[in-house]
Design a protein around this nucleic acid. Structure first.
Lengths: 250, 250
DNA sequence: CACACTTATTGTCAGTTTGTCAATAACGTG
DNA sequence: CACGTTATTGACAAACTGACAATAAGTGTG
């Protein structure tokens, strides 16, 4: 039945459906990957952690709704973060109150100072992703699944795009970028090989002046880099995720 | 604002929103990539081609809605096709009648005989993708955009997964599989290299008996293969899309 | 000051992969 | 039989990859 069959569709004949956006907002602090969570203030799941989100307004499109919520929750605007749709979740019973379909997004921000927590007094925190992954924290609704999918998307995109740079400030050292990969993938990468790939990729350009000064304690001063072009376009990997033999299209 | 703020939400206070699924169903016939389109029977866009789709029912989740529509439009069940969510489209004015958010899906079927065209008399056709790409055919609503995104997804996934086999019957020759890649990417691939990658991938197994008999006219008889494992898991490419230097994360 | 340690950068090397092309195998047709 | 066609296997040079070494450029300590 094509989308055209409105001749017999009356919205009042069906239970209402609400559409929301939910967001997995990732950042890195203290070399650890974190996700922004908010505490639920009412039932269902009162007191539990959840992904931030909200209703899509009647006059805004989905991306705009997500960008608005991102701004409200983090103070970060869309131009300073990576934001992309992840997918929609519409199990009939994901919310016991009514039919709610959520369009999930994921975002990457440079280190957030402190979550602003939205307009009300809701409690928000940058929670270690490892704590959600090891089930120390269980999320409300189907947010465990959404976060799991967002993590897999992030980890996958990290390999094929230069998106990792969105965790960094506008200028950064190659080691800082490498440490993004190490935090997200929970692994270590060879500094020499990584730098070779960064230099070869064409997605980064070296600053003409000077070396990194910020945060340096000891060791050789590093050169400073910035990004060039569209970071989400596929290209050659800067690094590859380790896969055991059995995982090869297993 | 978290998803929790239902304390002041009344669905009747807002314009109703309908949620639909739309599908880009791909198949290959006569060595050419085709997409299933239906002709609209009423305004808006009366007479125009559109992607098949329909309303999500109150008691079904999104995947089930898509699978149901796929069955209605093609007669193909979910277990015989690849079906995956592509993303949601929710521009406020995508449909002039009311607020409609669509969750787009894409599917891959072995050669469809003839589209069943759904329950009513709507006209359906397997249209050459090239005709939509070269703008010989313009689609209704935002379906041009949806189809473009689905195509890009298909072309990208073809590289990193063994999904191309879903265009083939349960058993196939390596050349048949290679011709899938050639049709989707609109290119030619080296037979020797392709076979080397198929053999090496671990995603395919050779039939123990015999060689291809069907459709062979001339030339050496080919061995017959089938798939093994999950075709959508990422692995080593069977082939790579040609990219000019300028497209490398340009 | 010398030295140890740390971090950044460049290089080496053996093994693997990739794309182009050749050689051989197995069929059908005239 | 020769030839054309399609399938399969192989050769080869260039490029890539991961592990590790060597050198560079700092800081801190005795």
């Amino acid at each position: 039945m094509p989308e055209a069959q409105f001749s017999d569709y009356n919205p009042r004949d069906y239970p209402a459906v609400a559409v929301t956006v939910d967001m997995a907002v990732f950042t890195i602090r203290d070399s650890a990957l974190r996700v922004l969570l908010v505490e639920r203030g009412e039932e269902p799941f009162k007191g539990a952690w959840a992904l931030p989100g909200g209703f899509v307004r009647p006059d805004e499109d989905l991306d705009a709704a997500a960008a608005r919520e991102l701004k409200e929750e983090t103070g970060v605007t869309r131009r300073d973060a990576f934001l992309e749709q992840l997918g929609s979740y519409g199990s009939p019973r994901r919310d016991p109150r009514m039919r709610v379909i959520t369009v999930a997004y994921w975002a990457v921000c440079p280190a957030l100072a402190r979550p602003t927590g939205g307009g009300d007094a809701t409690r928000a925190e940058l929670v270690l992703v490892s704590r959600v992954e090891d089930r120390s924290i269980d999320l409300a609704f189907d947010h465990n699944e959404i976060l799991g999918d967002a993590l897999e998307r992030l980890r996958s995109k990290l390999e094929y795009t230069a998106l990792g740079a969105r965790f960094c400030p506008p200028t950064f050292t190659i080691s800082e970028l490498r440490r993004v990969y190490e935090a997200v993938w929970n692994t270590t990468l060879d500094p020499g090989n990584f730098q070779r790939n960064v230099r070869r990729s064409g997605s980064f350009e070296q600053a003409r002046s000077g070396h990194a000064l910020t945060g340096r304690r000891v060791g050789r001063p590093a050169s400073v880099w910035s990004t060039r072009g569209r970071l989400s376009s596929p290209g050659r990997p800067l690094a590859t995720r380790h896969r055991s033999r059995g995982e090869d299209r297993g």
